[in-house]
Computed example of a mutant assay.
Amino acid sequence: MQILDGKALSKKIEEGVATAASELKERTGRVPGLAVILVGNDPASHAYVGMKKKACDRAGFYSVTHEMPETISQEAIEQTIEMMNGNPNIDGILVQLPLPPHIDTTRLLELVAPHKDVDGFHPYNAGRLMTGLDGFVPCTPLGVMELFAEYEIDLTGKDAVVVGASNIVGKPMAALLLNANATVTITHIHTKDLKAHTQNADIVLVGAGVINLIKEDMVKEGAIVIDIGINRAPDGRLVGDVDYENVAPKCSYITPVPGGVGPMTIAMLLKNTLKAAEMHAQERQ
């Protein structure tokens, strides 16, 4: 069993991004810029945004966070997004989810300019991903693909089961796997017999937000297990969606939680923002 070390790989990627950002600045005078919209007081959201800010600082990026109260109006957030769409110093715009119930999340995500959509949530970028064209890909599934590449895991012909069908993780993950020539099954909350799908899979990728959802008898010997879930256990520990202690011995590769997919998400945000900055620098030449 080999652990897929996202912490080590993310550090390596971050260092590469910092070098490329420095070269971009020397060549064009441009510093990659990321703007974040943070609404309300959700502790997890504030923690994530804090980590993203620190990563931007380490990579030499310019970053700004627009903190807004829980009671903010739809119109006020829309105005802020429009302002950032027109700001030449901002390459990437990120709307931190979830948003309060009175906010139309879909409308806001569609308002972000596709060429600044470093989260890959705009329908334009989702469509390009689905059709195998270049665009911005959601950071978490993109991070998983980077792990596969780093450990030289060939996906061609592999039977992959994705557990969870969200627009942020499950669906783009399935599209990336399909584009890499894997055979893909997507399961979700309405799937009748989850075990029937996972127990014969070469790769199980789970992002359902349910502690210990994937148990030892649900994976075959030698399977690759990618745990995308992150949950707070009753005792305060951070845990994934996989019963790691019992599942890991059966696996050829597995991601730990924490230290697996999580750090890769932020590394991919940096990579996407750098990509946007390089595109914008070329346009201005």
Rank of each mutant, 00 (worst) to 15 (best):
E82G: 10
T71Y: 04
T71S: 14
I81Y: 01
M83S: 14
C56A: 14
M84Y: 14
E78D: 11
T65W: 03
V49Y: 02
E82F: 05
S73R: 04
T65E: 05
A76W: 03
E75L: 08
E82M: 14
E75S: 08
M83V: 08
E75W: 05
E67I: 07
S73L: 02
K53M: 09
I77D: 11
Y62D: 13
A47V: 14
S45Q: 08
S73K: 06
H66R: 06
Y48W: 09
A76G: 03
H46Q: 13
Y62N: 12
Y62Q: 13
H66F: 15
A76C: 00
S73I: 12
E75Y: 04
T80L: 15
M84P: 02
P43E: 09
E75K: 12
T71H: 05
Y48T: 11
I81Q: 01
A55H: 04
P69H: 00
H66P: 00
E82D: 15
A59V: 10
E82V: 12
Q79V: 13
T71W: 02
H46T: 03
D57N: 09
I72A: 07
E78W: 06
F61N: 05
M51Y: 01
H66Y: 10
I81E: 07
G60H: 00
G60Y: 01
C56G: 06
C56Q: 03
M83D: 15
A47G: 01
T80W: 03
S45N: 11
Q79R: 12
I72E: 12
E78R: 08
M84S: 01
S63Q: 11
D57Y: 02
Y48G: 08
P43W: 10
Y62F: 10
P69E: 08
I81H: 02
